[in-house]
């Protein structure tokens, strides 16, 4: 459903994506992994149109989306740092984002799930980091979108909320949606990911299932597998 063809992106002299080719099939959870600076966030932001690629193509359902904006109707995005207009209340923020999409939304269930009711009338600047992240999650999952992109979704979440988040992700997967996740929490990847995409120096170093990566690196866990890849590269 989503594919990248010879994607290049430079920030000044820094060549972050170096002709990246990637195919993401429909349905399932895809974990995008890689060391710091490998281009994960750049890749994700390219899909969202926040970063404009230097060259190459991004095809969503066969259509190049670079420079367009309507396609974002079908993408939900959870940004890494949730920072909202300080003077708005939670309720107003949710209403505003709804106003932008004009699409059916189920924020009530999500608000109930994360027990956000007491915070609805509070100003966003007064919320704790974890609560902000919950609001962030509500904003992401309240719309029905075939493609969901999560950038470090677990930041600041307590264990209970983490469990709830995993359930939501699982539900979305069962509903046949495509989910892209970046995270540094390997246990989360092991738990939810169907396929792993490993980025290194701006190209795809590896793409396959958890079992395949462990087998290829002859390691017993994902964490060790990744470590061994990085060791090998250094050497």
């Amino acid at each position: 459903m989503l594919s990248f063809e010879k994607l290049h992106k430079s920030f000044g002299k820094l060549h972050v994506l170096q002709g990246l080719d990637l195919e993401i099939s429909e349905g399932g959870v895809f974990a995008i992994l890689g060391p710091n600076g490998s281009g994960k966030t750049t890749l994700i932001k390219s899909v969202l149109g926040m970063v404009i690629p230097t060259s190459g193509k991004i095809l969503l359902d066969g259509e190049n989306v670079i420079g367009k904006w309507e396609y974002r109707e079908n993408i939900s995005y959870l940004p890494q740092i949730a920072n909202f207009p300080a003077n708005m209340s939670v309720k107003e923020l949710i209403e505003s984002v709804k106003g932008l999409r004009q699409k059916k939304s189920n924020e009530h269930d999500l608000i109930a799930l994360f027990e956000l009711e007491p915070f609805l009338d509070k100003k966003l600047s007064n919320l704790s980091g974890g609560t902000k992240q919950k609001v962030n999650i509500v904003l992401t999952f309240m719309f029905e979108c075939p493609l969901i992109i999560l950038d470090e979704p677990t930041t600041g979440l307590d264990p209970l909320s983490l469990v709830k988040l995993k359930r939501i992700i699982a539900d979305a997967k069962d509903a046949g949606k495509t989910i892209l996740v970046t995270t540094h929490i390997m246990s989360l990847v092991e738990e939810i990911a169907d396929e792993i995409v490993f980025l290194l120096d701006g190209v795809i170093y590896f793409q396959g299932s958890l079992a395949e990566i462990e087998e290829q690196t002859e390691q017993s866990s994902l964490e060790l597998a990744i470590a061994s890849i990085l060791e090998k590269e250094k050497a």
């Binding site: 969202l48 149109g49 926040m50 904006w69 309507e70 396609y71 974002r72 109707e73 993408i75 995005y77 940004p79 920072n83 909202f84 984002v97 932008l100 999409r101 904003l139």
Partner: peptide
């Protein structure tokens, strides 16, 4: 940035 991820020009 949040707005940029929304379907808005």
């Amino acid at each position: 940035e949040l707005l940029l991820a929304q379907p808005v020009k």
